[in-house]
Design a protein around this nucleic acid. Structure first.
Length: 424
DNA sequence: TCTGGGGTCCTAGGACCC
DNA sequence: TCTGGGGTCCTAGGACCC
């Protein structure tokens, strides 16, 4: 059996660990620029605030019901995430997969004589007691069914007390006849529409369709999904793997019109990409830069463009990537537009020590690397962006509201102790 | 006035090889 | 009139996830 440990409205729960007053009140966490709702407490969900709701459209509701709003604090969430991972994985040794910032799978294949339900209840209780984070645990023979079990826990809180196990064909059938097809893991908006058009409303209905049909409509994913729902394992635990692409992209609080302002932003994004490359000891062979205007402002001229360069030599030097970013930026920037968003994406990675060097180009990556690593070490010790390149302003042009005293204290305590995290 | 950010995988089609 | 057969690699776009 697998178990899926899933933190309940994770970012909101993290906020509640800083301020117990928030308990049982409506709380939401907002994205960058305080633009969208990205986490909602149960009370906020009950008010009808949807996921990804633009905050400005819900101002009235926030005010009327005194919904507490917070800007996202990723240092905190990553830290809490690691605590939850540490507690959970102590129960299974090596058989786990960190699936996202708030979810992990545990594998109980080597546990023959324990009561998994009781065991998971202990995990849940320990996380709540030590970290003050409520979690739901779904147990089942396949990952996809774990998702179903987890859903059941969340939808019937008074009935299942945080843990549910799908361990018999009868329970599985009942669950699949209950679950809407759109809520199956792997069915997104597009597929949900197609399913509806073909009379597939519940997860169970999908199992009644011929394999050829599933294959045609959904591809190989669909065939695997059906088997997983039947309890036949198709998805194993994935080992942690280095990333295949890294992106740093931001919307700006205010639209930018000056070329040099936008340039400063993309250069900074390039440096963050370089830092993350060095953190996993890889170099990239491709760099992409994009810029775009505000797609919601139909009254202003729209422009979006992106350009990619294949590097002569793989690198993770902030200086070299910065140069490329500059060059690409000059190619696509056009005067006369109001820019709202920009980003840098790097991909096509090779390990730092296995680079193939172009015969005809000078290779200066190795000259830069010691300086870069020294910079990284200092920033790790003294805090993000303390040592930076001259082209970075060191200021974020996106807004984050004033931080609470509890959070300032948290940051201070954790400056020297970088949370060991990995974005999914 | 105000609309997030960061990933992965699959597939079809084109370019190219012998 | 008749126009092979079998591959690989790359890319863009679409779908999904959190």
């Amino acid at each position: 059996m697998y178990a899926l440990v899933d933190c309940n409205n994770f970012f909101v729960s993290c906020e509640r660990t800083l301020d117990p007053e928030l308990k049982s009140r409506p709380v939401v966490v907002l994205s960058n620029n305080d633009g969208c709702v990205v986490s909602r407490s149960k009370e906020a969900k009950d008010l009808g605030i949807p996921m990804a709701a633009p905050a400005f459209k819900y101002k009235e509701i926030f005010k009327k019901y005194d919904v507490k709003c917070f800007s996202a604090k990723f240092e905190l969430y990553n830290h809490k995430s690691q605590q939850v991972i540490d507690i959970s994985t102590a129960y299974v040794d090596k058989d786990y997969e960190v699936y996202s910032i708030d979810e992990l799978f545990l594998d109980f294949k080597t546990f023959k004589y324990i009561n998994i339900y009781e065991y998971c209840t202990k995990i849940k209780d320990e996380i709540l007691e030590k970290e003050n984070i409520p979690v739901s645990i779904g147990i089942a023979p396949t990952k996809t069914l774990c998702k179903v079990a987890n859903r059941i826990v969340k939808d019937f809180p008074e009935k299942f007390n945080g843990v549910y196990i799908l361990d018999t064909p009868e329970k599985i059938e009942k669950a699949l006849k209950w679950l809407n097809i759109g809520d199956v893991w792997g069915i997104g908006r597009r597929l949900a529409v197609k399913m509806d058009e073909n009379g597939v409303y519940k997860a169970w209905d999908l199992l009644q369709k011929p394999e050829m049909w599933v294959r045609k409509i959904m591809g190989i994913h669909g065939v695997r999904m059906v088997n997983e729902l039947k309890g036949i394992r198709q998805l194993e635990l994935d080992a942690p793997s280095p990333k295949k692409s890294i992106a740093v992209t931001r919307s700006f609080m205010e639209m930018l019109t000056k070329k040099e302002d936008v340039r400063e932003r993309v250069e900074t994004f390039g440096m963050y990409c370089s830092e993350r490359l060095r953190r996993q000891n890889t170099c990239c062979k491709m760099v992409t830069v994009f810029v775009q205007t505000n797609r919601f402002r139909k009254d202003l001229p729209e422009y979006r463009n992106a350009v990619t360069k294949i590097l002569p030599n793989p690198t993770n030097s902030s200086i070299l990537i910065g140069r490329v970013v500059n060059e690409l930026f000059d190619q696509i920037f056009k005067e006369g537009f109001h820019y709202k968003k920009a980003g840098v994406i790097v991909n096509d990675f090779v390990p730092e020590d296995q680079r193939l060097i172009n015969l005809f180009e000078e290779d200066i990556q190795n000259l830069h690397l010691p300086v870069m690593k020294a910079m990284d070490a200092m920033n790790k010790k003294f805090g993000k962006d303390k040592v930076r390149l001259g082209s970075m302003s060191g200021e974020n042009t996106f807004g984050r509201k004033r931080l609470s005293p509890e959070y300032e204290a948290f940051l201070k305590k954790n400056t020297l102790k970088e949370a060991n995290f990995r974005f999914h």
